[in-house]
Simulated scan of single mutants.
Amino acid sequence: MQIRAARPHEAGELSELALRSKGHWGYDRDFLARCSAELTLAPGDIERRRTSVAEHGGRILGFVTVQGDPPHGELGMLFVDPPAIGTGVGRRLFQHAVAVAEALGFTRLEIGSEPHAEPFYRAMGATRTGTIPSGTFPGRNLPLMSIATTPLHPRPTARRHTDS
């Protein structure tokens, strides 16, 4: 399996994968239809959201996005195709996202988690820091997770110059 940058023409395929992955948790068609806009990537989103895919034998197994600007960012989307769930693809994508964040100078990533995915994020070292409202379903709250990262290129801090 390799992880590589997603390509703009893959936006539709990634959006379909996100819906299949969300459907893995037993949500009905109405629920998934209402989530569709939130889970849709446009070609212009691919680079802007720093989208990476896990691929094996020419087949995309999952994808992840790292969004925002340092020092704090967001792991915006992490979806694995249902046949690949439990095979380590999610773990590799998560580790890749953290490495990307560190290379860009992020000190923390926040994750608005699917409730069923919270145990996965905990296993990856994230902690629950609160809840956030669903962007699709009024009254539904989602776990807010966070993971500290170690930036490879920390931002310079202002130094005080004092007279001796």
Rank of each mutant, 00 (worst) to 15 (best):
E55F: 07
A42G: 02
G26I: 06
H24F: 15
E16F: 02
I60T: 10
Y27A: 05
D28H: 07
L32T: 05
E38W: 08
A37K: 03
F31N: 11
G62N: 06
A37Y: 06
L17N: 01
I60H: 03
L41C: 03
A37G: 04
E47T: 14
V53H: 08
H56W: 13
R34T: 00
G57C: 01
I46F: 09
I60K: 01
L41A: 08
R20K: 00
A37F: 08
I46E: 11
D28N: 15
R20I: 01
S52I: 06
R49N: 13
E47M: 09
S36M: 06
S21Q: 12
A54L: 06
D45V: 09
P43F: 13
R50G: 04
R49E: 12
T40P: 00
V53K: 05
R48Y: 14
E38Y: 04
D30H: 11
D45C: 06
A33Q: 12
H24D: 15
H24I: 11
K22T: 04
R50Y: 09
E38V: 02
H24E: 12
E16N: 00
G57V: 02
A42Q: 12
K22N: 00
G26K: 06
T40G: 03
L19C: 02
T51A: 13
A37M: 02
G58V: 02
L17V: 05
L41K: 03
S36K: 09
S21L: 06
W25H: 02
E38M: 02
D28A: 02
R20H: 05
E38L: 03
S52E: 11
L17A: 05
A54W: 14
R49C: 10
A18N: 00
D45Y: 12
I60A: 07
L39Q: 13
L39K: 13
D45G: 01
R50E: 13
L19W: 10
W25V: 05
R20W: 00
L32H: 11
L39A: 14
A33R: 11
G57M: 04
E16D: 12
Y27W: 06
G44S: 14
R29C: 00
P43C: 10
I46V: 15
D28T: 10
G57Y: 08
G62E: 07
S21Y: 12
A42L: 12
R48K: 11
H56F: 11
L61E: 15
L19Y: 09
R48V: 15
A18G: 00
E47V: 15
R59D: 12
S52F: 14
P43G: 06
F31E: 11
H56T: 12
C35Y: 13
G58E: 03
D45E: 14
D28Y: 05
K22F: 13
V53T: 09
R34N: 09
L61P: 02
R50K: 05
A33H: 05
H24K: 10
E55A: 05
D45Q: 06
C35W: 15
A54I: 14
I60Y: 06
L17E: 07
E47C: 08
R59Y: 03
C35D: 02
G62F: 09
G62Y: 08
E47I: 15
G23R: 08
A18Y: 11
W25T: 01
F31L: 07
K22Y: 08
S21P: 04
R59Q: 15
D30F: 03
W25N: 05
R50C: 09
T51S: 00
R48L: 14
V53W: 12
S21G: 10
D45M: 13
G23H: 03
G62L: 01
D28K: 02
H56R: 14
